[in-house]
């Protein structure tokens, strides 16, 4: 007697076609990276030199770390616009601790790490809690945090740059292992941990679930608030780590660093194939996305393109990535 007029029944797609599509979907971004590398390798002199490769790896490290955190947030359908400001805040808090006189290097560095990561976690927690508790869009809440964290960083330092960190800490930032920057290895380890958390744990499963269908997850008896807060807090923790890496690499902490970094992090995540509407994507994609941005920034300089053209082309690539993302969405929906 019941006739359903709105739900045409879904039919199973043929299995081989699906796997072929999936392959194309997941490998697409990797193929793009390889093509980009090939292009610069053929058109410029030094692109594939060991020095330049380690340069690129150093250059993408901070963006990659921030983008890992951003992946968690975007996966649940949120956005975090405050990471750039939070980076400055975490750095000046960490930097202040790092320059406390009469501490051993070990003490200073561990306390500073604790302070920077703690600051990031606190800001991230507030982002998550405020948006989950009051049901506010994270876009607005983190826009607020963008100003709060920047203001706090300026207030704490009275707008002054902090420097004179322990020399061994400064040296750590440019350390290499077989030509690979140590800071990049740290970022890579974070990618591995994030991948594990997202794909192998109950927590990760529920983040994907929330991004796809919040109501279904809630009705399955899970507290949305807990997971949303956790995702933002993780993003904050990663900002704290990125702040330590920033200081190790550049040996200063200033309240005006990191302006606009959130946009690069978001770009890496989106280019990496994570859907802005949440629920789909991976941190491996984010790694590739960050690589594409880094390779592009580096390669275009080697190519001899002007600053303005460089910015223009980076913009084109971001838009292309989102178009591809749209196309991918259609493939999955089919």
């Amino acid at each position: 007697m019941q006739l359903d007029e709105n739900l045409p029944t879904a039919t199973a797609t043929a299995a081989p076609a699906v796997s072929m599509k999936l392959l194309l979907r997941d490998a697409g971004i990797g193929i793009a990276l390889v093509l980009l590398i090939l292009f610069f390798a053929l058109t410029t002199d030094h692109f594939l030199s060991p020095n330049n490769i380690s340069n690129i790896l150093t250059q993408i490290t901070i963006n990659l770390i921030l983008a890992i955190g951003m992946t968690f947030v975007i996966l649940i359908g949120g956005i975090d616009l405050s990471v750039g400001s939070m980076l400055a805040f975490c750095a000046v808090v960490g930097g202040s601790v790092l320059t406390i006189p009469d501490l051993s290097v070990f003490q200073a560095v561990s306390l500073a790490t604790l302070a920077a990561v703690g600051t990031g976690a606190l800001c991230g927690f507030l982002n998550g809690w405020i948006s989950a508790f009051w049901g506010l869009p994270s876009f607005i809440v983190t826009l607020g945090m963008l100003n709060i964290a920047r203001g706090a960083a300026l207030q704490v330092t009275d707008a002054r740059t902090i420097y004179s960190f322990p020399p061994s800490f400064n040296a750590f930032g440019s350390q290499m292992i077989y030509g690979v920057p140590v800071v990049f290895l740290i970022a890579l380890a974070l990618v591995a941990i994030a991948w594990f958390v997202l794909s192998k744990t109950v927590f990760g499963r529920l983040l994907y679930g929330i991004g796809n269908n919040e109501e279904a997850v809630r009705l399955a008896g899970h507290s949305l608030m807990t997971y949303k807060i956790a995702a933002f807090t993780i993003a904050g923790v990663l900002v704290g780590i990125a702040a330590m890496v920033y200081m190790a690499r550049l040996n200063i902490a200033s309240p005006i660093i990191g302006i606009g970094f959130e946009l690069n992090a978001i770009a890496a995540v989106i280019i990496g194939g994570t859907s802005l509407s949440g629920g789909r994507g991976s941190v491996i994609g984010t790694l590739l996305g960050a690589c594409i941005i880094g390779v592009l920034a580096n390669g275009l300089i080697l190519f001899g393109l002007s600053d303005f053209m460089r910015q223009l082309i980076t913009g084109v690539v971001i838009i292309l990535a989102v178009i591809i993302d749209k196309y991918r969405e259609r493939i999955t929906a089919a």
Partner: peptide
């Protein structure tokens, strides 16, 4: 001659690439 928008991090990245070139 390239811009780094007055910023430390960008100057670091841009210059290291210029040094490669």
């Amino acid at each position: 001659s390239r811009t780094a928008h007055w910023e430390t991090e960008e100057a670091n990245s841009v210059f290291s690439t210029m040094l490669t070139a």
